[in-house]
């Protein structure tokens, strides 16, 4: 029954990746005869290490924030009290907001001319949250948006069994913190690992938030790929494809690491 969906997905993903790989290796040139070469990779060799490091750092920080906030929100939601319902409603409202709208909102909120700077009236002493060296606005946007996703997925996992296991642990003498450490976190780990992987891969590969809220240099990989792709020089397109392939390889690495972890987990088996 899933065959049609698998076929379409394979065609789109596989076709796109094969085209990018071919273009990055000189096998799909816009002009001239095809020839196998790593020139596109070599042309960006000086920029890639900084781009890779920055992209991994942004993705890792965003994933960490999203998982911490999302897991905390899930615990509040699972309690089922009024604040849990409020958090669930806020999370549900956050999900459909596009990232580009979120990025624009973050800019209006966190920039040195933004709402918070005006509210606190710091007189020019407002930290560089937007376009600053620590990419805080970018991480904040990803953390905010993706935490809602994490919260709802983890809530779905915990809702069916968290209460009964929590009560069982309580009657075995476990206090609140012990239950969190020995029961709720372990039970949530598979769902958290899957969510973290999705958030990490998304943060690593999407460009619009980093492009809007980040600084001009160094560029994260997706911004670098986009700039190269939109470059007036048509010969830069293989370089854009090369950067995209590096990003894809990193994403596959993250997914492979996540599955390796999940395969070891008794809850996943």
């Amino acid at each position: 029954m899933a065959a049609p969906a698998v076929l379409v997905a394979t065609f789109v993903v596989g076709g796109g990746m094969a085209t990018s790989l071919a273009q990055s290796l000189g096998l799909f040139p816009l002009v001239g005869p095809p020839s196998l070469t790593v020139a596109a990779y070599a042309a960006q060799a000086s920029e890639l290490p900084a781009g890779i490091g920055l992209s991994l750092a942004i993705a890792a920080a965003s994933t960490l924030v999203a998982c911490l906030v999302g897991f905390t929100a899930a615990l509040v939601i699972v309690q089922g009290r009024w604040c849990g319902k409020l958090v669930a409603a806020l999370g549900t409202l956050t999900i459909p907001v596009p990232h580009i709208i979120g990025a624009a909102s973050m800019s209006l909120l966190l920039a040195d001319s933004g709402l918070l700077a005006r509210l606190f009236n710091t007189g020019g002493g407002w930290p560089e949250l937007v376009g600053g060296p620590w990419w805080i606005a970018v991480v904040a946007e990803y953390g905010w948006k993706e935490s809602a996703f994490v919260a709802l997925v983890v809530t779905g996992t915990l809702a069916t069994r968290a209460v009964s296991y929590d009560e069982t642990a309580a009657l075995l003498g476990a206090g609140r913190l012990r239950r969190l450490r020995h029961v709720l976190i372990p039970l949530s780990m598979p769902a958290l690992a899957v969510c973290a992987t999705i958030v990490f891969v998304y943060s690593l590969g999407s460009y619009e938030v980093a492009w809007l809220l980040g600084r001009a240099y160094p560029e994260p990989l997706p911004v670098m790929a986009l700039q190269l792709f939109n470059s007036a020089t048509l010969t830069a397109r293989p370089e854009a494809a090369a950067v995209a392939m590096v990003t894809t390889t990193l994403s596959f690495g993250a997914v492979a690491a996540a599955f390796a972890y999940l395969r070891r987990s008794t809850l996943w088996r």
């Binding site: 296991y165 009657l171 075995l172 003498g173 206090g175 372990p186 039970l187 809850l267």
Partner: peptide, 29 residues
């Protein structure tokens, strides 16, 4: 609080912690 009442409960479903093996379940308390 329930954890301080010196009681333990066994329910219709065993509710063994799925992330722990048999021995660690018993060693939980």
């Amino acid at each position: 609080k329930p954890e301080r009442r010196g009681m333990a409960m066994v329910q219709q479903r065993p509710l063994l912690f799925p992330h722990l093996n048999v021995l660690d379940n018993i060693a939980f308390a």
